[in-house]
Each structure stands twice: as C-alpha cells, then as structure tokens.
Design a protein around this nucleic acid. Structure first.
Length: 622
DNA sequence: AGTTCACTCTC
DNA sequence: CAAGAGAGTGAACTT
C-alpha cells in the first residue's frame, strides 16, 4: 500500500495557531507516582513555518523533585483553548503529566500521532516517534543520540563524583541531569523541541491525510474518544488494600520457606533454584539424579517443550504426578511464589494519591490506589508487534490478568484479586457481556447458531443437541464440551486444542469437531469467506469497518501459515470495537450524570468483555 | 546489556 | 491443516 506524499499546505497563523503539538520531558514514566515533567515543548505553524517554544524547570538532584516556578500563560491559554487542536505522541502520558503538575486538561480536539499510525495499519518496524518521523519525514535522530550519550556520561560521572545524587533507573529518567550539571547545556531542549516538531509534522504532513486516504479516519476518531475515556479511567485508578497485602506477603513468605526446605531436602540439593525449570528438569526426569527413591523419580516424560523439545515442567504436566510429595511441594511453591510476586509488583505501583486531581474529597486520599495504564496500541512503542485485533491491554501493573481463584486452573492459586475493591462509601458495578464473541460469530455465520440466539436459547445447549456425539452424553458433561467446542471453533482450533486445553480425548474431539462442522456448515462457510477476503486484501474488516491485518506469510511449500486466523481476528476485533463504543457511551452518560445530577460514578476497569464502575453507595438500588 | 525460552496469569 | 489476543517474570544464553 503506497501513500501519496502529502503536499505541504501553508497554514496561516494569526495570533493563535489552529494546531499545536505538545511534548513533555519527565523524570520518569511513573505518572501516578513520583515522576514529574520538567520540560514542555510546543510546536505550531506560523505563516507556513514551524515555530517552537520550550519551558523548563530545574530538578533537585538529591530528591529528583522538579522545582516549579510558574507555567507560561500563553501555553496555558493555548492548551485550554477549544479552538486549538492538540497533537501528541502518546497523548495520555503527556496529559497525565501536565494535569498532575499544573492541573490543566486539554480542551478541544486531542489527536495522537502514534495512535494514528496504528490506525493506518501500515506495518512499521517501530511505532516510536523517532522512527516514524525518520521514515515519513526524513528527520534524522542525531540529537537523540547526542542527548543519550551525554546523559550516559553524566550519569557515570555522578556515580563517582556526586554519590548523593538520586539517579533514575535508566538513561531516559535522567535527561534533566545535563542542565543540572551545566546550566548552559541545551541538548535536552534541542531534543524536546525536535520531538514536538516531529509530532506536529507527522500529523500535518502525513497522518491527517493518510487517515483519509486509507479510509480509517472514523476508526481513528473512535480511538480518540476511547482514549479520553481511558484517560479518566487511569486517573481514577482502583483501590488497593495495601496493609492487608503486606500482611499476606509475610504469610506467604513463611509458607515458601517451609516448602523450599522440604524440596531441597527431598531432592538432596541445597543449592537448587526451584524457579529454574532447567534444574528441575534434571532432578525430575534424569535417572540417577535424585537418590531419594521414595520420590519415585525420575518421572515418565509425557510432554516436551515447544521449541527445544525438552521434557516439560509446567504445572499441567506435573499435576499428573502430585501424588509424589516433592512434585506436590514444587507445585505449591510455584503457586505461592506467583502470588507473592504479584503482590510485590502491585506494591511497586501504589499511589499515595496526595497529588491526584481525580479526587474531589480529601478523605479519599487516605486510601491507596493503583493507576494502571490501559493501552490502545501496546504497552511498548518501540516494537514491531502492536495489538493486533484492537483489544485494550493493561500494564504497570497488568490489571487484566489478576488470578481468579474461582476460575483458575492453577494448582495452588493465591487470591490476589481480593486486595482490590471499592473505595470507602462506594460499590462496584460489574457488567459483562453475555457470550459477546459467540454472539458475533453467530451474527457472522447466520444459520442455526444465530437462530438459537434470536430465540433466546442457550447456544451451548444448541451445539450439544446438534452434535450427535454430545447429545448422546450426560447433559452436563455434553454441554461443557459443547461450550469449549464453540469457543475453540471461533478461534479456528481443532481436536488438538480440545484435548490439550480441556482434556477431551483426541479421538472423541475429532468426532465432535467433524460433527459440528457437518451440522453447522455455515460456520465453515463463513470461516472460508473471511479467509478469502484476507487473502485478497491482506486484512479483514470488523463489523464497524476497522481493518485488522492478516499475516499472509507462506511456508516453504507455498501454503499460507496464518490466513486461517482471519475469522478469529474478525470476531475478536469486532468485540473490541463494541467494548470501546460501550466505554465511550457509558462514560458520556456518566459525565452528564456527574455534572447535572451530582451522581458520583466512574468507569474504573475494562477487561475485554467486562466493565467495572465505581458508584457512590447512596445512588444504588436498595 | 540484550535476546530467547519456559512458564503463568487473563479474556 | 492450524485456538486467538495479551503482560510479565526469571533463567540461561550471547555480545
């Protein structure tokens, strides 16, 4: 897909510009904790020429605190002027930083060039600002290299000469250091101004046009609306019971110590690292490694690892042998370690909230909260692989994969979910879609499955009744396999998946899948249809017309390796479209209720087909 | 210091 | 003829 180079127009800049690009330089990435912006760069067009401005504050090297004086009145005016469009690269981050430091939010249109790049669906090697600007605007990255080299040297210098300086964890956290050591050093300013220019020009000279040419402007607008909702959600955060978590960690540590001693004794290896699957493999599978015959080692090899084809030591495999004491201990050790690490990780993200403008009431500050990031592109910008289907991801910490003891298939799962909960005086409203993906699949296939939904019948029972092999089974068991089959079929899986993930014997799974495809011919037809579309265009379109790329790599025999995934992308992508729209619409309604009806309610979490709201108790139904 | 692999948790 | 999408960790390896 080739883009026409956008011909640069001559924007007219009277006293105030129509668009500005904004970039912040900060003391780190933890916007909800103790990192702050120390520099702001702005770029705009004036009579067709790019102009920039730069504001900077000193950073106390002993505390890393930014020594704020004042903020430019002109910047404040522009930032809050609804007539001026604001362009960012990774907008939420800069918005968080600016709100936190100066209590200002952008008013008017907010656009994110990195998100625009993602919407354009051109597969980039990197979605970082520098790389995009180099590729599309031929802007070199020399100043970045100079800055990083200088900062690297400065950090080393401080490590020996100014040991009391509080340096950051990485180079990126110490850009302020240059000015601190040498007030005449303006490398950071040059870098900052250039980043704002990159952002502005990428928008104006490339993506604004590209979105139109590639017919994804609507997709982009939805993403921007979603982004503003996510911004508020991140700002609100989620309550974390820090004291209880701390106690739990101590308890888990004691549990760990017991099992560690037992395992090391049982395997007669005082230096064993139980976290090392390599070391465990030797003990569990190699003859003569462990002398303690009561452990009945070595274990029979029942599964090999995917890449290296070594005997697997994962929980599902070892579970078969939990009648062997040391195996049981190892599984428990793993479960506890996982839970403990999760809690420690949450603790690293605890926010003291004293600064947060998300709270109107001072007593709320006494509670601890965690403000995870919710990402529309990916948690990392410098990598090739971005979110494929449009689902949101969560990071720092990931709140979308917190263990659920009610559902988990793990062996010894610590309930870490219970350390999150509603703030005092609030309740949670958890809303989740019923069979969102299966519904979409039924909509796409039509036929019996769609009919079942329309008539309000249970789709899993529909499958059970229509697949003779399942119909002949005991009802509860049949429905369970039917449910897993439905899910497996959506994602283009087969009998192998049913066997490995759900324990359905392979020969039975084969019968079930073939009978399903016989009875629900329309599903096969739809899958073929999606695949053919992907083969023709290189992408599929979701129900809202958003494009999702399909990898058309071939194997050495010329066969497409991943084209079969087209229908799975269609379903997952469409589902994410729906949840994003739900977020935008519910939040818009909540915004109205907050303003006009003094209803205190907020969206705080989005987990794929689930939205969680925090609502003041008195507003709720009795 | 950076990469790959095995592993584990989610929807 | 194939389950998909993610974040994150630690170990063991290479540079």
């Amino acid at each position: 897909m080739k883009l026409q180079q956008f011909k640069e127009s001559s924007p007219i800049c009277e006293s105030t510009p129509k668009i500005i690009a904004v970039d912040t330089e900060t003391t780190g990435l933890r916007w909800s904790q103790d990192d702050y912006p120390f520099g702001i760069s702005v770029a705009w067009y004036s009579n067709g020429k790019v102009e920039t401005d730069w504001f900077e504050w000193n950073v106390d090297p002993n505390t890393r605190r930014v020594l704020y004086t004042d903020i430019s009145i002109q910047f404040r005016d522009w930032y809050t002027n609804p007539e001026i469009d604001k362009i960012f690269a990774n907008a939420k981050f800069d918005m968080h930083m600016l709100e936190k430091a100066f209590r200002i939010k952008p008013i008017g249109n907010v656009y994110d060039v990195l998100n625009a790049a993602w919407c354009c669906n051109t597969q980039e090697n990197s979605y970082g600002l520098n790389n995009l600007a180099e590729k599309y605007l031929k802007i070199d990255q020399s100043e970045t290299k100079i800055l990083r080299d200088k900062v690297n040297k400065a950090r080393n210098y401080c490590r020996s000469q100014y040991k009391h300086y509080k340096l950051g964890a990485g180079i990126g956290e110490d850009y302020w250091l240059l000015k601190c050591l040498d007030p005449t050093d303006n490398s950071c300013e040059i870098y900052g101004r250039k980043d704002a220019v990159r952002t502005l020009r990428l928008w104006r000279e490339w993506y604004e046009e590209a979105l139109k040419v590639l017919d994804v402007r609507e997709t982009f607008e939805t993403e921007m609306s979603t982004m503003m909702v996510i911004y508020e959600m991140e700002n609100r955060g989620i309550r974390f019971f820090d004291v209880e978590a701390k106690d739990a960690v101590e308890e888990l540590n004691q549990q760990l110590a017991l099992r560690m001693l037992a395992i090391k004794t049982e395997l007669q290896d005082p230096f064993l690292n139980i976290n090392s699957d390599g070391q465990l493999r030797k003990h569990l599978y190699k003859k003569g490694q462990s002398l303690v015959h009561i452990n009945r080692l070595p274990l029979p090899i029942t599964k090999l690892t995917a890449k290296e084809k070594k005997p697997a030591t994962d929980t599902t495999t070892l579970k078969q042998f939990d009648n062997v004491k040391v195996v049981k201990d190892i599984l428990e050790y793993r479960g506890i370690t996982k839970g403990k690490d999760a809690l420690l990780n949450f603790q690293n993200h605890i926010c003291s909230d004293a600064f947060s403008s998300a709270y109107d009431f001072p007593w709320v500050h006494a509670q601890k909260s965690i403000h995870a990031n919710f990402n529309q592109i990916s948690s990392q910008f410098d990598k090739e692989n971005k979110t494929k289907t449009g689902r949101l991801t969560s990071s720092n910490p990931n709140l979308q994969n917190i263990a659920d003891i009610a559902k988990s298939g793990g062996y010894f799962v610590v309930d870490t979910r219970k350390f999150f909960g509603p703030r005092r005086g609030y309740v949670w409203y958890c809303i989740d879609y019923s069979q969102l993906e299966l519904r979409l699949f039924a909509e796409r296939t039509g036929g019996k499955l769609k009919e079942a939904f329309l008539k309000g019948r249970d789709p899993h029972n529909e499958t059970r009744e229509n697949v003779p092999f399942l119909a002949a089974m005991e009802e509860g068991k049949g429905r369970k396999i039917a449910k897993n089959t439905n899910f497996t079929i959506i994602n283009c899986g087969g009998a192998g998946v049913l066997a490995e993930k759900y324990g359905v014997p392979l020969h039975e799974g084969k019968i079930v899948v073939s009978q399903f495809k016989e009875e629900f011919k329309e599903t096969v037809r739809r899958q073929k249809q999606a695949e053919n579309y992907a083969l023709k265009y290189g992408y599929i379109k979701t129900i809202f017309g958003r494009k999702v790329n399909v990898d058309l790599t071939r194997d050495k025999n010329g066969r497409f390796l991943y084209a079969y995934r087209a229908t799975s992308y269609d379903i997952q992508g469409s589902a994410s479209d729906i949840i994003k729209r739900a977020m935008v619409q519910t939040n818009s309604r909540l915004g109205y209720l907050r303003r006009k009806k003094k209803i205190d309610a907020h969206l705080i979490l989005s987990i794929h087909d689930e939205l969680i709201f925090e609502i003041k108790k008195e507003h709720c139904f009795k």
